[in-house]
């Protein structure tokens, strides 16, 4: 475990905490895409199929449990919590899951490291994670008022993947035989998708004004 990887995981954890904070304290999920949250729940389910079969470390297992548990709770809150669900912008959040999931599944069936169920699901999870933010970014562009917690949530989520890239570079340099194209390429695509958002986030931070994306 290197510092980039640890910081990345902690940033990911913080993004989830920020979102849960918004849901728990403000009882609001305004500006948050349920589609993206559902895709994340699918991503972690498909990726962590090895949770009961391969023990890596206590840290690894605990983090997997946390990401699975929190992703499903967020979906539950947004769908079923009697107060939280009222703030969900259903009419604005119109992205269809199938348009993202189907191409990712086809790609995972075609390009994978081994053609087994677990391996294809693991690969699928990376392809899907790369694009899972798209419904959220579309919603963000449609929502004129982006509150601070939503902005911070998306910033932390983007930062988490950017830090993973530094981790991969570090591991490639320091560990022999560390080559892993599928997470690398999908991680790179994912980080690039945040590029535009990062630009406006830093602009609003620098000028100390409220974050707004151009229409």
């Amino acid at each position: 475990m290197n510092i980039f990887r640890l910081t990345a995981d902690m940033t990911h954890l913080m993004s989830v905490i920020v979102l849960l904070l918004k849901i728990h304290t403000i009882k609001s999920c305004a500006g948050i895409s349920l589609k993206t949250q559902e895709l994340y729940a699918i991503v972690f389910t498909c990726r962590y199929l090895d949770i009961f079969t391969d023990f890596i470390s206590f840290y690894n297992t605990i983090m997997k449990v946390i990401f699975l548990w929190t992703s499903f709770s967020i979906v539950w809150y947004m769908r079923y919590h009697k107060i939280v669900r009222r703030s969900y912008d259903k009419d604005q959040d119109t992205f269809r899951h199938v348009f993202l999931m189907l191409p990712c599944l086809v790609l995972a069936l075609l390009i994978n490291e081994r053609f087994t169920f677990k391996e294809v699901m693991w690969t699928f999870s990376f392809y899907l994670e790369a694009v899972a933010i798209l419904p959220q970014l579309v919603l963000l562009q449609r929502t004129r008022n982006i509150d601070n917690l939503t902005g911070q949530y998306i910033f932390l989520l983007g930062a988490y993947r950017a830090l993973y890239i530094l981790n991969w570079i570090y591991r490639y340099v320091t560990e022999p035989n560390y080559v892993h194209w599928i997470p690398w390429m999908s991680g790179l695509v994912q980080t690039l998708l945040y590029g535009d958002f990062f630009y406006y986030y830093f602009l609003s931070w620098k000028n100390n004004v409220k974050l707004q994306l151009p229409a």
Binding site: R5, H12, I56, N60, E113, N177, V179
Partner: peptide, 10 residues
Amino acid sequence: VKHDFVKDEL
């Protein structure tokens, strides 16, 4: 080269 990679990342 095929690596039997330990999936230790999240």
